[in-house]
Design a protein around this nucleic acid. Structure first.
Lengths: 224, 224
DNA sequence: TACAGTGATGTCTGTCGCTGACATCAGTCA
DNA sequence: TGACTGATGTCAGCGACAGACATCACTGTA
């Protein structure tokens, strides 16, 4: 006979999500989570650095997928095209089967500021990492950070939409729409998929922007 | 004689920053902060909902300035022009005299993940509020959120640069540069201040996007 | 002038997140 | 067979925070 049931970490994660969903995050103690799967509080904290982390552990691979997407982009791609690649690559982590689970998890997070803070922190870490990958492609600052943060923003908005009740489109499709909307916003629209103006003024005011003569870009500001 | 020294909250804030800077955030207990200004731990927590909040309390006015900037934008301004207005309005909270203080405060935050989380949460709250203000102008989703998040990103990057040792430009100037860099990135650059492509690919692929029918190089963003 | 609020504070006590130190014990491997 | 390892349990303690209640200068009012 085995001394310990295997997969302690996964069992703790599942139990935690379940308890958080039913009782609420703050009303659930770490000791309760541990007990519910036959472990002790001490063991819980050996697996997770803190109580919130039980909901966030394992995003390493997601982050890696994002970075892989960056690295897989063609060498002559513009920063935003690189981001588009990364977004598509990352979306592979969220097949439609996972939608219900993601929805449940997110509803727990949405109900607790402490969890929201952790989520934002993770997303910021993603942006930082992606910015690093962009640096490695020779992209400077602040372009790299700007592009990375924009990517994170697009992902966040697209994910939130993907989760929304009644939404049928796949995550990559939504990502693509949101990214195009971003280009729309800033006055440049591109290529294949065109986004319908999502609501009222979305496309109206935007479209009357004078477009920038993509002039000879010289004379950088001193800061960099 | 008075029973209590006035300005308990401000005294706590000042003492906290001082102690955090010297001993570190985690090495400083709430009780110590309180004692250092002749108060008790209990009183500390009556003024601040949690230990981190002592560094963030009072940003209400900053947020309000941002929103006021949105509301003050001309009615026919594009979302990004509105954001430009808001950025300029918000910058009034950070005159050059405040740079040293901001730098110190930020160095404390940068050294502690818990504080970074709170900062990100506040910034996200800003974006949410601004998105609401954009809705009120008739801008739909996801344009409003996209614009608001972009504004928050630009502010964050600009602020970080403003704080940087050796930086001399004013915050509004940096904001303007970063915002233009964002437009550059997405292929649209506008009006007056042109930013050089930050490095290699910045302008390459982008420039072959079908340029949105270029208008006269008129109308600089109203923000400045 | 007495006196009942009011509000900022202190005191006491308790819960929970989290940690260090140490013990346990099934399985592994020399 | 015996040392070693790794996942776990036990114990004790710190610090963040919250509820309940007491205190007491100050204020307005009768």
């Amino acid at each position: 006979m085995v001394r310990w049931e295997p997969g302690a970490k996964e069992r703790l994660q599942a139990a935690a999500l379940e308890l958080f969903a039913t009782r609420g995050f703050e009303q659930t103690t770490a000791a309760e989570i541990a007990q519910s799967v036959g472990l002790t509080e001490r063991t819980f904290f050996r697996h997770f650095s803190d109580k919130r982390e039980v909901l966030f552990y394992g995003q390493q691979q997601f982050l890696q997928a994002f970075v892989d997407g960056v690295d897989a982009a063609p060498p002559d791609a513009s920063p935003l095209e690189v981001i588009a690649c990364a977004l598509q690559a990352a979306a592979s982590f969220f097949p439609d089967e996972r939608r219900a689970y993601s929805r449940m998890r997110q509803s727990v997070i949405d109900q607790n500021p402490a969890l929201q803070e952790r989520e934002l922190h993770k997303l910021a870490g993603l942006a930082t990492t992606v910015a690093g990958a962009l640096h490695a492609r020779g992209i400077g600052e602040p372009a790299a950070t700007l592009a990375a943060e924009s990517g994170a923003t697009v992902f966040g908005i697209a994910f939130a939409q993907w989760i929304r009740e009644g939404e049928r489109r796949s995550l990559p499709d939504i990502e693509s729409d949101v990214l195009h909307e971003l280009l729309n916003l800033t006055g440049a629209a591109t290529g294949t998929r065109r986004t319908a103006p999502s609501r009222v003024a979305a496309g109206s005011r935007i479209s009357d922007r004078r477009a920038p003569a993509a002039g000879p870009p010289e004379a950088a500001p001193p800061g960099r």
